[in-house]
């Protein structure tokens, strides 16, 4: 999106900076809420203030000139490319949050099927076969050398 003065807004960057600023501010307020003693704030408070100052210095980068080449690479990315990235991120979230709920075997298999499809494997039988073999191999291979047992449903 361009503003009247020939500048555009990089929305993704704005969201990232907002997240960083919110996290830093919330952390500083939480730390100050816990205690105002030096032993609590000695490093956290100056570092948080420095981070907020630096965030203010980064702010102009979110509104580059419309003819700026800086964001050209990102602009060359299609909407479909970005959707694939978001699907992969969502699938990884599904894996991380469901491992202990549905079992490592089911969660891994589903993630592999979705991951392979999103990353470009079009042959469904290769996808299913690779995902199944990889899941079994990983659970029995990795499972034997890790100190914690993996919760499983089928295997």
């Amino acid at each position: 999106m361009s503003t009247k003065s020939g500048r555009k807004i990089v929305w993704g960057h704005l969201i990232l900076l907002t997240v960083i600023v919110c996290v830093v501010t919330a952390y500083l307020l939480d730390a100050r809420g816990v205690s105002l003693r030096t032993n609590n704030l000695l490093l956290v408070q100056p570092a948080a203030i420095l981070a907020l100052v630096l965030a203010a210095l980064v702010l102009p980068g979110i509104f580059p000139r419309a003819d700026s080449t800086e964001e050209a690479e990102i602009n060359s990315e299609t909407r479909a490319d970005l959707i694939r990235v978001f699907i992969l991120i969502a699938a990884l979230a599904g894996l991380a949050f469901s491992l202990e709920v549905v079992g490592f075997d089911i969660a891994t298999f589903i993630f592999m099927v979705v991951g392979l499809a999103v990353c470009g494997e079009k042959r469904w039988w290769v996808n299913l076969l690779f995902s199944a073999i990889f899941t079994v191999f990983l659970i029995y291979g990795y499972g034997t050398i890790t100190p914690f047992p993996f919760p499983l449903t089928f295997l």
Partner: peptide, 27 residues
């Protein structure tokens, strides 16, 4: 990479679980 990306992501997730012993690592 269509095989490598999901495979390595899963191995990393397992590694993260192995370190923490709970979903704290993968999350």
């Amino acid at each position: 990479l269509r095989f490598l990306i999901p495979s390595v992501l899963v191995v990393s997730t397992y590694g993260a679980y192995a370190i923490e012993g709970s979903s704290a690592g993968p999350i």
